[in-house]
Every structure is written in structure tokens, then in C-alpha cells.
Design a protein around this nucleic acid. Structure first.
Lengths: 344, 344
DNA sequence: GAAATTACCGGCACCGTTCCCGGTACGGTT
DNA sequence: AACCGTACCGGGAACGGTGCCGGTAATTTC
């Protein structure tokens, strides 16, 4: 690593003081045109770059955002892309840490970013996380914090999230409209907010349509294709099995689909299937899978925007909450009755 | 943002000098047991965290790695995951910047990370990048650099890459073994090394098996499902169309598959298809698509390991090159003659 | 022609930490 | 009593940059 040219080098070369050089470079007051020009020319020639560390030390800000996410799957990659784009635009660099759905690593990541002195945090908690002391610690230090996607109820801060209840409603209502009557749900881990909200929508819709809630049809499993596959096998092996399945993610929908095919059942005939996230894969498999779009990219951008606003408004902001509206994309896996609207 | 407790605070509270406190905290020489204990206890109580910026300014290192990648697709996310894991272990934090396959943004990202004073770079160039001055600039400043995945030939530095020629050979030879004789290739942009190398393997294999190379069957298009779809339609519309297609990525394979299906042709009967990357989607579609696995996660880990080694060995290392061996996973889209080995 | 104003530059402190060196107090040696 | 060694601590500089204040010379003002 070569030594960078500093303001001092320029000062010595031009027989000036460092303060004068500094002023010249920043077009500040108290500076003669000639000297300013000379300084700028030499700076250009020596490829001078101001040392960010020195500035950060002085100004107590690093222009860096710490992003903590549980993994880098399709949805979160897309969100990170959105965050990145907005952050870059605003002059911030992003540090992404994956907790890999592990509570322990989430804490380690928080510590790391905390003493990297990031200007703030954008966090989506892991599915393992049930205690939030590490998040509270961020708040205690008065460091800006925005939660997104997997938000937590009892933490008071700006949030960006999907209207998950609406998503659950859309998926379930669609299945009801298609004539399915025994609708099962493959939900995520029990403490996961997004999962519970989607389930809430599911339950609401069943009740609204006068359908009985069958507890055997509510299954909690990991966000994982394999688990979903096995859970579906169990569902289908029941005495009075469901005629439709709503899964909380597309990966789970794929797992369910494999189990359904293995059993020799048809979609949408024997079983209806709706997933969540609207990943590209849903339109590639056969039958294509209906899924709820959650506009990840926009959500990422909205999160970063909210965060930047917060940072610039300096002091206490009333905790805003941005709620993105989901939208179901109907495909073959659940379409028994032709729709009026064009399908995607 | 609250003021952090500094070494000075402790010094004042204990009526000591900052140097003494510093020594106490680092278990250094010249320190009485009692004072050391007192300092450490107070530090604990005040939740003292050493200021990394000050340290970085002093030691001229930030313990940060700049990673530049063209996007966050399946392959690269997986690689980043590998890099992240190893880096974290070694005490480094990763700054990921996506160029979004844009040359301009790649340069911007380089600049940004450069004046963020990262300790080194791990780079995979965008498909647009044909000029490498920005990379050279990194080298001129004697900043450690490792290229991975999309490496560049005429840059002299450690590299981690796939044996792309071998990948092309495996894919093509497999198609030949299955009795296909008119094999087309959907390659990437012309200047992209990985694409050319895979094509080299393709050409070699054709020659080795005494098959004629038909230039109409060599198509360059973007790494993109839509382009691949259209290119395939053109291929199939030819007077003497190919009987097999080798695509340089799985996304392209999907595009090709859609065109093949649309034309009413069957796989593997009428047309054989082999993709690249071995993304999960290949085994989810019907027919499942044969694909060449490139061990992205391992590649990411290997890259980070090489990088860390380089960083620790301090001075000039002979540019190592780690070459990962690919492996084809045969599936329905190209399997006409049963294999001896078990398929995946 | 003395005073006030202006234009321009340098010195110093500071951000938080470490390193090098010098100093003091105390005990033991001769 | 003079000397040496050891144990412990503090002062100052440095990393790279900025802000404040003070100073000097030239120019303007009455």
C-alpha cells in the first residue's frame, strides 16, 4: 500500500501552510486566486484524494450504512440492490452483513458494524431472533435505525414493510374464489412477524367466507424447500386432506409442488397452490405457480430513502411506517375458473 | 448519535494519562496491576469501545475489503456469501458494490472504495468492461487485488476462476455422447473471458469428435433470458437447425427452453439442452435441465482465503491462480441414453 | 497622514489512539 | 553516600484534515 499524497505534501511543495491548502481546495474564504489555482493544479497532478478517515474522525460520521440481513436470497438481494442504489446516489456506502438466519451471527454483525462506526443501521432480523437487546443497544446510542421487511413490533423506530395481512388475504381469497374449500397454510417459524401476519390474513379470509379453520391445516416450518416438501407429504397423507395450499414463500411452494406431483395429484385440479414473493422461478415451473408480489426492489429503495431522510433531519423524527401493498399474480397452479383480468 | 466514551474520559476519571490507560487496556508493559484492574473495570462500566477510525488513521488499515461485482444473481450471491464468511472469520468487514453490468458504475465503485481506503479489492468485472485503467490504478497504488470468476487475462494479479474450458468440454462432450451432432452454442458478450473459454471448450470438443463447426450455430447474446429466447427462435427457424443447444448460463437455458417448447419440439428427443451454473431452478423446471456446476460458494471462500493470505504475507507474492474444476450434472433435458452413473 | 478596513496567510488546537522517550520514586549494591 | 536498576507514569508527536484566531501588509477612508 503506497503512501497517499496528503495536504501536507502540497503545502510543503508550495511553501504554504496546511490550512491555506485546505482552504484552497475547498474554495473557502481568505484565499488568493493565484494560490488557489496553484494548489488545485498540484493537487490534480499528484492525484490528491482527501483522507476519509481523518474527516470521519473529525466530523464523527463515516458516510457508511450498516445493513444486516438474514441471507441473500432472491428477495433480499433485490432489496439490497434497491438500498444500494439509493445510498450510492446520496453519497453513502453500504456494508452488508448476513446473519445467515442465526441469532448469534446477527449479534456479532451488530457489534462489528457498531464499532465500525456506521452512521446508521438498516436491519431485517433473522428468523431465530426472539430477543432484541442488540437492536435496543443501537437505539440507546441514538444511532439512526430503520427496520425493513422482517420488522419487529415492540421496537419503536421507522419501518418499511409489506402489508402482509393484505398479502395473506389476497392469496386466500383468490383460492376461495376458485372454489377451494379446505385451504391449508405452510407458515414460517412461529415468532416470525411476516409469517404471522400472512397467516392472520389467511384466517380472516376463511372466517369472512364462512369457512371453518382446521388446525391440522396450519403448519409451521422453516423457510425451506425440504421442510415444505415433507410438511406437504404429511398434509396429503391425512384422512381428510386439504384441496389447496398457501405457502408463505415460493421456495416452500416449490417444495409443496414436488410433494404434490410425487403423490400423483394434479394442479390446479386436485390441489390449488399459491406462493409468496413472486420469484422468477414461479413462472418457469410447470404448472406455473401463482404468487404474491412484494415489490422487493421498490421496498429496498423506499427503505434507503426513509433512512437518508432520517439522517438528514438530524434530530428526533416521529417513527414513520411505510407499508407496501402486495399484489397477487395468478398462474396455472391455482386457476380453475378463467379470470377476467389478464393473467401474467 | 451519542458521544462514545474515549480513553480520555477514563484517564480523567482515574486521574491518569491517556497513555497509561491505553497501555492498561492493551495489557502492555509498564503498568501496575492495580491501575490495570481499575482501568479495565471502568472501561467495562462505561462500555468503552476503541475508536476504529482513530486506529485506522494511525495504522493505515481499515480491516475492510472492497468487493466489486457485476450483479447479485444466484452465482454471485453465493460467492459473496463465501467471501463474507471467510472475511468475517479473519476479522475483516466486506463492502459489496454492484456495478450492475455497467462499466461506468464499476469505475464509480472503484473510486468510492478507493477513497474509503479499503485494505484491498476483490473484483469480478462487468460484461461491459473492456478497458482496465481503473483496475490498473488499484495496482499502481500497491493495493492488494484479487480477481475472481470473471477474470481478465492481461492483468497480472492473483486470480480465482473456474476451469471454463473444461466446463465447455464437459457440456459439449456430454451432448456428443448422447448422439447429438449439430450442436449450437449460446455464448455471452464477445469480450467476456468466461464466455470465450467455455466456447473454446465447445470448439475443441467438436473438433476432437470430428464434428464440423457451423458458424451459424455460434451466437453471442447478452446474459439474459429474453435474448436467449429470441436467439433460440432464430436458431430453430433455420433451414438446417441444430439438434442441441449449449447455453453459457442457466438463465439463458431457460430462455432457450421456452423457445423450444413454443416451437412444439421435445427435449431431449428433438433437441438436447445443457446450461451452466447448476442453479436450483434447473432441477425444478420440466424437463429438468442438465447443467455445469461451478461451486460458487467454494469459489467465494477460496477467493477470500487467497486474499487474506496475500494481505498477511505483506509484500510481493507471486501471482497465484486457483482454478476450480467444474462438474456437469446430467438431467432430463439432454439424457437420451441412460447413464451408468446416477444422475442428480 | 493617521486610522480603519481588507485580503491573505500561518499557528494552534482538536478528533482518538498509540508509540517513543524522558522522568520520578523507590529499593538494593558497593 | 553515590550509584544503578527497576517499576511505573506522563508528555509530546504523529496519523490527515479543518476551524478559529491572530498577524501582517496593502489598500481605503476621512
Amino acid at each position: 500500500m503506497e503512501k497517499q499524497t496528503t495536504i501536507k505534501d502540497i503545502a510543503i511543495a508550495l511553501r504554504l501552510s496546511t490550512s491555506t491548502v485546505s482552504r484552497a481546495l475547498r474554495d473557502a474564504h481568505d484565499i488568493k486566486q493565484d494560490t488557489k489555482k496553484a494548489v488545485k493544479e498540484l493537487a490534480e497532478k499528484l492525484d490528491y484524494q482527501p483522507n476519509k478517515l481523518a474527516l470521519s474522525l473529525l466530523n464523527r460520521q463515516t458516510h457508511t450504512i450498516g445493513v444486516i440481513i438474514p441471507n441473500l436470497d432472491y428477495v433480499l438481494s433485490t432489496m439490497v440492490k434497491g438500498i444500494d442504489e439509493v445510498a450510492l446516489e446520496a453519497g453513502y456506502t453500504v456494508m452488508v452483513c448476513q446473519s445467515d438466519e442465526s441469532f448469534g451471527r446477527e449479534i456479532v454483525n451488530t457489534k462489528r458494524l457498531l464499532d465500525s462506526l456506521v452512521d446508521g443501521f438498516i436491519v431485517s432480523v433473522s428468523s431465530e431472533t426472539k430477543v432484541f437487546e442488540h437492536i435496543r443497544k443501537i437505539q440507546q446510542k441514538k444511532i439512526p435505525l430503520v427496520l425493513f421487511d422482517r420488522v419487529v413490533n415492540n421496537i419503536d423506530c421507522p419501518k418499511v414493510r409489506l402489508d402482509n395481512v393484505a398479502g395473506g388475504i389476497q392469496a386466500t381469497q383468490h383460492l376461495v374464489d376458485q372454489g377451494y374449500k379446505k385451504i391449508a397454510i405452510l407458515a414460517g417459524p412461529e415468532n416470525l412477524n411476516i409469517s404471522n401476519k400472512r397467516m392472520e390474513g389467511y384466517l380472516q379470509t376463511l372466517k369472512l367466507n364462512g369457512l371453518k379453520v382446521d388446525n391440522r391445516f396450519i403448519i409451521h416450518c422453516d423457510f425451506n424447500q425440504q421442510y415444505a416438501y415433507e410438511a406437504t407429504k404429511e398434509l396429503l397423507a391425512m384422512r381428510n386432506p386439504p384441496d389447496a395450499i398457501f405457502t408463505i414463500s415460493d421456495r416452500m411452494a416449490i417444495g409443496a409442488m414436488l410433494a404434490i406431483k410425487e403423490k400423483g395429484l394434479s394442479m390446479p385440479g386436485d390441489i390449488g397452490l399459491v406462493g409468496f414473493n413472486n420469484e422468477p422461478v414461479t413462472s418457469l415451473v410447470s404448472p406455473s405457480i401463482s404468487s404474491v408480489e412484494m415489490y422487493s426492489f421498490e421496498m429496498g429503495k423506499a427503505t434507503a430513502k426513509l433512512f437518508i431522510e432520517m439522517l438528514h433531519s438530524e434530530d428526533a423524527m416521529q417513527p414513520a411506517e411505510i407499508v407496501i401493498k402486495p399484489k397477487i399474480f395468478v398462474r396455472e397452479s391455482s386457476l380453475r375458473i378463467p379470470l377476467k383480468k389478464t393473467k401474467s
